[in-house]
């Protein structure tokens, strides 16, 4: 249990790893917007190429990327089925009784799958795989700092996230210990009906809750002893700095978006 890692961070030193987390947050949003800008086969082609380039740049193994795709395979399959069978168009490809498959449907299915694939790859490459959760928290706190003026508790939210991240491994460790302790007293978590197994979890959850509250109390005291009094007047040790790399990245991203829009104007092939 000591080896549990937070999030899905894949340690590395690629160009993407080195970018400012705030910029990565912005880039991932822009990239998602870009995927929705695509309309025809050429712009979708460019989008697909860009995803491959990003994967290569980040030096994240393909197997890891595939793992992040796996949970959405069902959604992908569903999208394909819906698009193929329920899109009507002009070019009929296949007809059997009540089933009509049009070229437009097939194209739509391919485009949608590509879009979702790029969505997931973009978000996971820029954020989860190349940015530590703590850097992400910092980025969120600093990016949304202006919202403090309209009384959005940005600092408090970021602090909560930090503490949650800090305590996940600790609580997993504790769950493990409680489970062992209950097993030693003859508790059985693995057999019986679903309801019985859910019931067997109660003796784990209650001690876990009790100890979490105790921990929270002690942590609050310790934080008070270290002069914590909210975000006001607080400075940070590590201040994020945008560097040349970040500006180049956003320029490339904007050019990419613009070229996608331009490519859409070329009336080549089927337009979504």
């Amino acid at each position: 249990m000591k080896n549990i890692s937070l999030g899905q961070y894949y340690p590395g030193n690629s160009v993407i790893h080195r970018m400012d987390p705030r910029m990565k947050l912005i880039l991932s949003l822009l990239y998602i917007v870009c995927s929705f800008l695509c309309r025809n086969i050429i712009s979708f082609g460019l989008l697909f190429v860009s995803a491959i380039v990003l994967i290569l740049l980040s030096r994240i193994p393909m197997s890891l990327i595939m793992r992040s795709i796996r949970p959405i395979l069902f959604i992908l399959a569903f999208t394909v089925v819906i698009n193929i069978f329920w899109t009507s168009g002009e070019t009929l490809l296949f007809e059997w009784k009540f089933i009509h498959i049009y070229l437009e449907g097939v194209m739509n299915a391919v485009f949608m799958v590509l879009r979702i694939f790029v969505l997931i790859v973009g978000a996971s490459l820029f954020l989860t795989y190349t940015t530590t959760p703590i850097a992400l928290t910092d980025a969120i706190e600093q990016l949304f700092a202006p919202l403090k003026r309209i009384k959005v508790p940005v600092h408090e939210f970021a602090m909560m996230m930090t503490i949650a991240l800090r305590f996940i491994p600790t609580l997993i460790d504790e769950t493990d210990k409680i489970m062992s302790a209950q097993k030693a007293r003859g508790a059985d978590f693995t057999s019986g009906s679903l309801i019985n197994r859910a019931k067997a979890l109660i003796p784990i959850l209650i001690p876990l809750f009790v100890s979490s509250f105790r921990r929270a109390d002690e942590l609050a005291t310790a934080m008070e002893c270290r002069c914590y009094h909210g975000g006001e007047g607080r400075t940070r040790m590590s201040i994020l700095h945008y560097r040349a790399l970040d500006f180049i990245a956003i320029l490339i991203m904007i050019t990419f978006g613009v070229s996608l829009v331009l490519l859409n104007m070329l009336g080549i092939g089927y337009t979504m």
């Binding site: 937070l6 930090t162 800090r166 270290r226 400075t235 940070r236 040790m237 590590s238």
Partner: peptide
């Protein structure tokens, strides 16, 4: 310990 990285935690007091 508040932060997820040792040096960040040590910085917590002075930051406050």
């Amino acid at each position: 310990l508040v932060a997820t990285i040792v040096e960040e935690d040590v910085a917590f007091g002075p930051e406050n």
